Simulated assay, not measured.
Amino acid sequence: MAIHFHEEDLPSTDIFAEGAAIAIDTEAMGLIPGRDRLCLVQLSDGSGDEHLVRFGPDSDYSAPKLKALLANPDRLKLYHFARFDVAIMRAYLGIMATPLYCTRTASKLIRTYTDRHGLKELVKEMLGTDLSKQQQTSDWGAPDISDAQREYAASDVRYLHRLKEQLDQRLARENRTELAQACFDFLPARALLDLAGWAEVDIFSHG
């Protein structure tokens, strides 16, 4: 198990197991895609290693190998909050990283006994592991990314494959698998609405 750090692009797409789902997360200067710069993309195929791709302030975000992987329609992408990650990668990388599965969305559909759907709470309940969130609000645009930041970033993709297995079992148990898939299928459109200016507006509401 190791954390691999790359500047501006992946060295190759062959570093991931063929056909495996790819867990993905991002770190940015803030939470508004388009205003806040994309700084880091984290990836894992569930085998135990994590790969971090860092983009500098002068990056042109060309990253052809990373984009080829993310845009591959035959690769399932696992996220915890797909709405943000898909939007910010669309804004900076120009690709739609789908098809997707969102563990936060799945959690909201089957863990209706709680309003705590953060990754830390989900990993604690379902996998029995405590995650540190100390670096969550750190400066991801700094010239040097600390070891603590790297570990935090890697941990955001380390557990998504195992979470999916657990969540899928519960979705099936509660007969919500098809509903979850419909939500996953809609999330790219939700991300595009965010980027187009409808972030806080429910266009399906009566008002």
Rank of each mutant, 00 (worst) to 15 (best):
L40M: 05
F16K: 06
E8T: 06
G19T: 10
L10D: 02
L38M: 00
D45H: 01
P11N: 09
A20N: 13
D45I: 00
S47P: 11
G46P: 03
I24K: 06
G30K: 03
D9F: 10
R37T: 13
L10W: 01
G30A: 04
F16G: 01
I15T: 02
T26S: 12
S44Q: 11
D45G: 05
E18D: 12
D36N: 13
F16I: 10
T13Q: 06
D45P: 13
A21C: 09
G34T: 07
G19Q: 11
A17N: 14
I32A: 09
A21W: 01
P33Q: 12
D36V: 13
D9W: 05
A21F: 08
L31I: 12
D14W: 11
D9A: 08
I24Q: 06
D49S: 15
L43D: 04
P11W: 10
E27N: 05
R35Q: 15
D14P: 07
I22N: 03
G48E: 08
D9T: 05
T26N: 11
A21Y: 04
S47L: 15
V41I: 11
A21E: 06
D25L: 14
T13D: 05
F16H: 05
E27G: 07
D25I: 08
G34A: 02
E18Q: 10
A17R: 15
E8I: 04
G34M: 01
L40Q: 01
P11D: 06
A17F: 14
V41G: 00
M29V: 05
D9M: 07
I24L: 14
G30W: 02
Q42S: 06
T26P: 10
A17L: 15
T13E: 10
I15P: 00
D49F: 01
P11H: 09
L10G: 04
S12I: 05
D14F: 11
E27C: 03
T13G: 05
T26Y: 10
D45Q: 01
A20K: 12
D45Y: 01
P11S: 09
D9C: 09
I22P: 03
R37W: 08
A20W: 02
S12H: 02
A28D: 07
A23G: 04
D36A: 12
L40R: 08
V41H: 00
Q42M: 04
G30R: 06
E8G: 07
P33D: 07
D36Q: 08
C39G: 05
M29W: 00
E27F: 09
F16M: 13
I24D: 03
S12L: 03
I22C: 07
E27M: 05
D9R: 06
A28I: 07
A17P: 06
L38C: 01
